[in-house]
């Protein structure tokens, strides 16, 4: 290759490289300004005390974290969060899995049922919470009216400390089931049809076929749904803000809501950032744990 063509190809290479970064520039700029920089600033803020405008007043090192871990409040909030995850994630997945299993067949009218069970996907947390706040109404709500039929006395859903978290979870399961149902149904559609046939020939009933043959094949999808749902449940905010505001008696005060209160109502940005980082670490650890422990049981084809 002559020196001239070498120089030309180097120039072309350089031009392509420049074009590459030009194409990345817009998204990269947004990520730097609104993801990477805030991530670092969060770490810095968590070690400071700020004035209400967010200006750093004092550098306090790890004091915010010490305060968090020595106060019972943070652990109470953490317990509520874990309880919320346990109340919503398994329920949503099992409920959606049952619906997906029942509607995954070629019977007439299944498309309509599939549409209905996917429908909650369009419900936003804002509209969903408003609808349920009316359904939950202690005296005029339809939920108490319906449970009256089966002889249960009225429950003051959102105002009763024993029921508030259950109520919020009920609404959350309903709101999230559309997404989980869609993902699980399309996972089921990926299971080859001849598998059902050969299971039938072998004399396996539908329930056994589902548990022993379909479920293992579905495990990658279930694993994905589990990871996403756990992360989502740890970050639930809107329904708590609208329905209970953390009450009654802090029984629905999840960590994310307490971050909101500390940072945006009391303007204590330092302690808010510290809580956010601790929560992030917990979610990250749990996700890594799920990958390490559960993924071994996942059957990838």
């Amino acid at each position: 290759m002559s020196a001239q063509t070498q120089a030309a190809s180097r120039k072309a290479q350089w031009k392509e490289g420049a074009l590459g970064y030009l194409f990345l520039a817009p998204s990269l700029l947004v990520f730097i300004c609104f993801l990477f920089y805030p991530m670092l600033r969060s770490i810095y803020l968590s070690m400071t005390l700020t004035d209400p405008r967010g200006r750093v007043a004092d550098f306090v090192g790890l004091d915010n974290f010490k305060d968090l871990f020595s106060s019972g409040q943070f652990f109470t909030n953490l317990k509520v969060t874990l309880l919320f995850v346990l109340l919503t994630v398994p329920t949503t997945i099992i409920w959606s899995l049952v619906l997906a299993a029942l509607t995954h067949n070629k019977l007439r009218g299944m498309k309509a049922f599939q549409f209905v069970f996917s429908l909650p996907i369009v419900i936003s947390v804002g509209t969903g919470s408003i609808i349920w706040s009316l359904l939950f109404h202690p005296t005029a709500g339809m939920l108490n009216y319906f449970i009256g039929f089966i002889g249960i006395s009225p429950i003051s859903w959102l105002a009763d400390p024993n029921w508030a978290l259950v109520s919020v979870s009920l609404m959350t399961v309903w709101m999230n089931m559309g997404f989980v149902y869609i993902v699980l149904l399309s996972g089921l559609q990926g299971v080859p049809d001849d598998l059902y046939e050969s299971a039938k020939i072998d004399g396996s009933g539908p329930v056994r076929t589902f548990l022993q043959i379909v479920l293992p094949l579905l495990s990658p999808t279930l694993f994905f749904v589990l990871i996403v749902s756990v992360i989502g449940a740890f970050q639930a905010f809107g329904q708590i803000h609208i329905l209970t505001k953390g009450g009654p008696m802090d029984t629905t005060n999840v960590v994310v809501y307490s971050i909101y209160q500390d940072a945006f109502i009391n303007f204590r940005f330092g302690i808010g950032s510290a809580q956010a980082l601790v929560l992030f670490a917990i979610i990250l650890a749990l996700t890594v744990f799920q990958f390490k422990v559960l993924e071994k049981k996942v059957h990838y084809q």
Partner: peptide, 27 residues
């Protein structure tokens, strides 16, 4: 396109999915 640090940049983009909103919302 071929450019320097392409794989590193791709990993950087992947990593943005790991940053949760509760950490970035205050800043």
């Amino acid at each position: 396109l071929q450019f320097k640090l392409k794989n590193a940049m791709f990993l950087l983009y992947l990593s943005t999915m790991m940053i949760p909103w509760e950490v970035t919302v205050i800043p």
